[in-house]
Measured scan of single mutants.
Amino acid sequence: MTEYKLVVVGAGGVGKSALTIQLIQNHFVDEYDPTIEDSYRKQVVIDGETCLLDILDTAGQEEYSAMRDQYMRTGEGFLCVFAINNTKSFEDIHHYREQIKRVKDSEDVPMVLVGNKCDLPSRTVDTKQAQDLARSYGIPFIETSAKTRQGVDDAFYTLVREIRKHKEKMSKDGKKKKKKSKTKCVIM
């Protein structure tokens, strides 16, 4: 069974824990209790493949930012979460993405942009803004509501699919490099 290491990042209060708990335990946590770091595991079937999701729910508070490099190193894919009623959390996505790329030393890291709290009427981040940002990053965008469960499975499952595509691409690139290195030079 394939294991996928997913990391949920975003500013404090955007609903990272609520999304994760909704996926794992099928219930909505409405009281806000700032996370330092929590880890969850769940076995699911995605596109006919049974897999184990190892999900790291991270601290959004700035005082825990020193811990970010460590979990970013171990993560295979990242859910970059903002709240649709919090423009600052949307603007912060850029910083999370840049930090992930720096730590992973790669421009090509599996990510999904997630606009959470889409059940709320007080939207300050337009869907088109988020779609445009995701398009500019070359990553999928999904709106979710941890409260109603809308888009929750889709967000995590899409990230797994992005990781699969990335692994497939990397193995193809690896095979191309191996083929090239088999060419021999004969000096007579």
Score class of each variant (00 low, 15 high):
residue 40 Y to R: 12
residue 39 S to V: 08
residue 28 F to H: 10
residue 9 V to G: 02
residue 167 K to H: 07
residue 50 T to G: 08
residue 156 F to G: 03
residue 110 P to Y: 01
residue 154 D to T: 12
residue 185 C to T: 15
residue 30 D to Y: 06
residue 168 E to R: 06
residue 29 V to W: 08
residue 162 E to R: 03
residue 15 G to N: 00
residue 71 Y to F: 11
residue 57 D to N: 06
residue 24 I to G: 15
residue 71 Y to N: 13
residue 55 I to F: 11
residue 61 Q to F: 06
residue 185 C to G: 15
residue 180 K to G: 13
residue 122 S to Q: 05
residue 96 Y to L: 15
residue 36 I to F: 05
residue 27 H to S: 10
residue 122 S to V: 09
residue 3 E to R: 12
residue 125 V to D: 11
residue 83 A to W: 01
residue 113 L to K: 00
residue 45 V to P: 07
residue 154 D to H: 12
residue 29 V to K: 11
residue 3 E to G: 13
residue 112 V to A: 01
residue 22 Q to S: 11
residue 12 G to S: 07
residue 122 S to C: 09
residue 95 H to R: 13
residue 17 S to L: 00
residue 188 M to W: 12
residue 47 D to P: 05
residue 39 S to G: 10
residue 188 M to F: 03
residue 100 I to K: 00
residue 10 G to P: 00
residue 169 K to W: 13
residue 100 I to C: 01
residue 150 Q to E: 14
residue 139 I to G: 02
residue 97 R to V: 15
residue 80 C to Y: 12
residue 66 A to C: 07
residue 29 V to H: 10
residue 21 I to D: 15
residue 98 E to F: 00
residue 100 I to R: 00
residue 74 T to L: 07
residue 80 C to M: 13
residue 81 V to I: 07
residue 59 A to F: 06
residue 172 K to L: 14
residue 110 P to E: 01
residue 78 F to S: 01
residue 40 Y to A: 13
residue 188 M to C: 13
residue 102 R to S: 09
residue 147 K to N: 07
residue 145 S to L: 04
residue 130 A to Y: 14
residue 112 V to G: 00
residue 182 K to I: 02
residue 131 Q to A: 13
residue 67 M to Y: 06
residue 146 A to G: 12
residue 141 F to V: 04
residue 3 E to N: 03
residue 178 K to R: 07
residue 101 K to M: 13
residue 16 K to I: 04
residue 61 Q to L: 10
residue 120 L to N: 03
residue 9 V to D: 04
residue 184 K to E: 15
residue 129 Q to C: 05
residue 160 V to W: 03
residue 2 T to S: 12
residue 122 S to F: 07
residue 40 Y to I: 07
residue 169 K to P: 02
residue 86 N to W: 02
residue 67 M to T: 14
residue 67 M to P: 12
residue 44 V to G: 09
residue 45 V to D: 09
residue 145 S to V: 08
residue 113 L to P: 00
residue 32 Y to L: 09
residue 71 Y to M: 13
residue 93 I to Q: 06
residue 39 S to P: 08
residue 45 V to T: 09
residue 14 V to P: 05
residue 79 L to R: 00
residue 172 K to E: 15
residue 119 D to Y: 01
residue 118 C to D: 08
residue 30 D to A: 09
residue 172 K to Y: 06
residue 115 G to V: 10
residue 110 P to W: 01
residue 52 L to A: 13
residue 186 V to L: 09
residue 75 G to C: 15
residue 32 Y to C: 11
residue 81 V to G: 01
residue 130 A to I: 13
residue 17 S to E: 00
residue 77 G to H: 00
residue 22 Q to Y: 02
residue 49 E to N: 05
residue 158 T to A: 07
residue 46 I to G: 05
residue 158 T to M: 07
residue 6 L to N: 00
residue 159 L to W: 01
residue 10 G to M: 00
residue 69 D to S: 04
residue 110 P to N: 01
residue 110 P to I: 01
residue 20 T to D: 11
residue 35 T to R: 06
residue 160 V to G: 02
residue 133 L to F: 14
residue 126 D to A: 10
residue 76 E to Q: 10
residue 100 I to V: 03
residue 150 Q to Y: 14
residue 141 F to N: 02
residue 157 Y to N: 12
residue 177 K to D: 15
residue 36 I to H: 10
residue 31 E to D: 09
residue 133 L to R: 06
residue 135 R to H: 10
residue 73 R to S: 12
residue 23 L to G: 15
residue 126 D to I: 07
residue 40 Y to D: 11
residue 173 D to L: 04
residue 162 E to K: 03
residue 156 F to W: 07
residue 56 L to Q: 15
residue 4 Y to N: 09
residue 136 S to R: 10
residue 10 G to N: 00
residue 126 D to H: 08
residue 97 R to W: 15
residue 8 V to K: 00
residue 59 A to Q: 11
residue 135 R to Y: 02
residue 155 A to V: 10
residue 150 Q to W: 10
residue 132 D to P: 01
residue 183 T to L: 02
residue 60 G to W: 04
residue 141 F to I: 13
residue 112 V to L: 03
residue 127 T to C: 13
residue 27 H to L: 11
residue 117 K to Y: 15
residue 44 V to C: 08
residue 169 K to N: 11
residue 161 R to L: 02
residue 96 Y to T: 04
residue 66 A to V: 12
residue 44 V to F: 06
residue 156 F to Y: 03
residue 26 N to L: 03
residue 154 D to P: 04
residue 138 G to S: 03
residue 80 C to G: 02
residue 109 V to Q: 01
residue 100 I to W: 06
residue 144 T to Q: 14
residue 181 S to Y: 01
residue 33 D to I: 09
residue 112 V to D: 00
residue 156 F to P: 00
